[in-house]
Simulated assay, not measured.
Amino acid sequence: MSSIDRTSPTVAAKTASVTPASAMTTVGANASGASPAAEPVMALDDVSVYYGDVEAVRNVSMPIRHNQITAMIGPSGCGKSTVLRSLNRMNDLIAGARVTGTITYHDQDIYAPNVDPIQVRRHIGMVFQKANPFPKSIYDNVAYGPRLNGVKRGLDDIVEEALTGAALWDEVKDKLKTSGLALSGGQQQRLCIARTIAVKPEVILMDEPCSALDPIATSKIEELMYQLAADYTIVIVTHNMQQAARVSHYTSFFTAEVDDAGVRHGRLVEFDDTSKIFTNPSEQRTEDYITGRFG
């Protein structure tokens, strides 16, 4: 997959301090973060996703912009996670799943016959809803990906850099040989983020990364997302509209529709700057959802 193999950003070594939550409250406002001129890293064009004969999501078109956080919101069953998983071909692992339309990464169709899905996931990493550290040491969790890619030297630096980038280094630097499963829930999720960025992807997909966490751990993950956006492009699925408003630059609102044949499928209703989605949406359905009239 040489045509999609690009030089990915390196995580600059950071201190363990994180951006104050107060500084994050304006992220959703376009003037404080989102750049309308930011070039798309990825783009979806008329994308539909099927499970067997069932069309789960229909005709989605939207950009994923460089070094921006894009949130996907909407009621349960509207296809948010299905679309997210299509961005790095995770749906390939589900029997009968297929994608129509085009999803590009730097203008390369990631579903083209000559494209290796393993290489797609090398550049487009994923953090799942439930923290899933391996039953290995903290060190081996982070070093797993680089080792799998053949890296043998400099692993200590890679592990420290990734844990620093995930705002976890100061908390675990003296217990790297301890099992990752011994960490708290929030620490485990940050460990999974460190494991993801250790292989230097360009895009990070996050599927409800805070749904199982308490408010304090959630705040740390949100602050971390804000930091990571300096080096990565992030797409997050969340049921928490306040979270989307706090951390994202762009928001896409999905809903579930029933067509004339009585078939239910997910549809993208609106994509825009987060500030506009939450203050002056173009679609009545978007306003109804964010004001709690349904969903």
Rank of each mutant, 00 (worst) to 15 (best):
R190K: 13
D273H: 15
N280M: 09
M206H: 08
H249G: 14
I204W: 06
I204H: 08
V235Q: 06
Q242Y: 02
K200R: 15
V203C: 12
E222S: 07
F254C: 09
Q187A: 13
Q242P: 00
R285T: 01
H265L: 09
K173L: 04
V237E: 04
C192I: 10
Q188F: 03
D273T: 15
D214K: 06
D273E: 14
A212L: 01
E161F: 00
E283W: 00
A198I: 11
E208K: 13
P215L: 07
I193E: 10
G165A: 05
V151Q: 13
L181Y: 06
K173F: 01
G186R: 12
F278L: 11
Q243V: 04
E171N: 14
D170K: 15
A245N: 11
A194R: 10
E222M: 06
D259A: 08
R246D: 00
T164D: 01
H249Y: 01
T279S: 15
Q189G: 10
M241W: 00
L205S: 13
V235M: 12
M206V: 07
V247K: 05
L155I: 08
V247D: 07
E257I: 10
L205T: 13
I197E: 11
E257C: 02
R246P: 02
N280H: 11
D207T: 11
L163C: 09
E160C: 04
D156E: 13
M225G: 09
F271Q: 11
L176Y: 08
E171L: 14
A245S: 14
L155C: 13
R195V: 10
A229E: 03
E160M: 08
T218Q: 05
S275Y: 10
M241R: 05
Q227I: 00
K200F: 04
V151E: 08
E270Y: 02
V172I: 11
D231Y: 06
S248Q: 10
V247T: 11
L191R: 07
D207H: 10
Y232M: 09
S252Y: 00
L181H: 12
E270D: 03
Q188W: 02
D156Q: 12
T218G: 06
K177I: 06
C192Q: 09
A182R: 15
E270V: 08
E223V: 01
F278K: 14
V203K: 13
I204L: 07
I193Q: 12
A229W: 00
I216R: 13
I193K: 09
T251R: 05
I234W: 03
L183F: 03
D273Q: 15
F253V: 15
Q242C: 01
N240W: 00
A230R: 11
S275K: 10
D157H: 06
T233V: 10
G185A: 08
L268M: 09
A167E: 04
G165K: 02
G266H: 04
Y226G: 01
V247G: 11
I236L: 06
N280Y: 02
L168E: 09
A245C: 05
P209N: 08
S275P: 07
V151Y: 01
P281I: 02
R190V: 08
Q227A: 04
D174H: 15
R195K: 14
R153H: 08
S248Y: 05
L224D: 04
A244I: 07
E223C: 07
T233K: 07
A212W: 00
A245Y: 02
T274E: 09
E202T: 14
L213R: 06
D174I: 04
L155P: 12
V237Q: 04
L168S: 10
Q284N: 03
R267I: 10
M241A: 05
A167P: 01
L183Q: 11
